[in-house]
């Protein structure tokens, strides 16, 4: 990460360290008093703490966005995944050797069941739509007939919208 491009482009840790002490070099007003009270000294410590954490947080954030960190993250992950894959393969083979089902077999089975379930549900949806369509087609002439009959009969005034809530 370090390079020779001058003072503005120093390595991140040096930058953090310089920033931190730079900000610490400017204590609050209370610290300049001749005889600071305990409250003032507490305030100073809090400020030091704040400055340290802010500088540290900025340093961490910059570092975790750096190519160096991202490359390291990728390499670590690739290695741990490769190890896990090898371990799974070995355990799977051992289980196969013992004629017992491995996790991969159960995963496959779960996946197959899910696909079957999906197909059945899709089919049911399609059937439901068809039935609803047919029902609506039957209902329209029935309702028309009923409305025609109702308009002939004398009825009391209709009720308001019934409460649907339970």
């Amino acid at each position: 990460m370090s390079n020779n491009n001058g003072a503005t482009n120093t390595d991140p840790f040096s930058q953090f360290w310089t920033d931190f002490f730079g900000k610490m070099g400017a204590p609050p007003e209370a610290a300049r008093m001749a005889t600071p009270s305990p409250a003032a000294s507490n305030e100073m410590i809090k400020q030091m703490q704040r400055v340290f954490f802010d500088a540290m947080a900025k340093y961490c954030e910059d570092y975790m966005r750096s190519e160096q960190f991202l490359t390291m993250m990728k390499q670590t992950m690739d290695k741990s995944l490769a190890f896990k894959q090898q371990l799974d393969q070995f355990l799977g083979q051992a289980q196969k050797g013992m004629q017992s089902p491995a996790r991969a077999d159960i995963d496959d089975l779960a996946g197959t069941l899910l696909k079957i379930e999906e197909r059945v549900l899709d089919r049911l949806d399609a059937l439901e739509k068809k039935v609803n369509g047919k029902a609506a087609a039957v209902e329209v002439p029935r309702r028309a007939k009923r409305d025609a009959g109702a308009s002939r009969a004398t009825r009391p005034s209709g009720r308001g919208k019934s409460a649907k809530r339970k």
Binding site: A7, T18, F21, M24, G25, A26, P27, A40, M48
Partner: peptide, 19 residues
């Protein structure tokens, strides 16, 4: 040096009881 703290020892001008 512009990046060097103006007064690097200011942080240590705190009352003793702070530490």
């Amino acid at each position: 040096m512009s990046t060097f703290p103006q007064n690097p020892f200011a942080a240590f001008q705190m009352p003793q009881q702070a530490f």
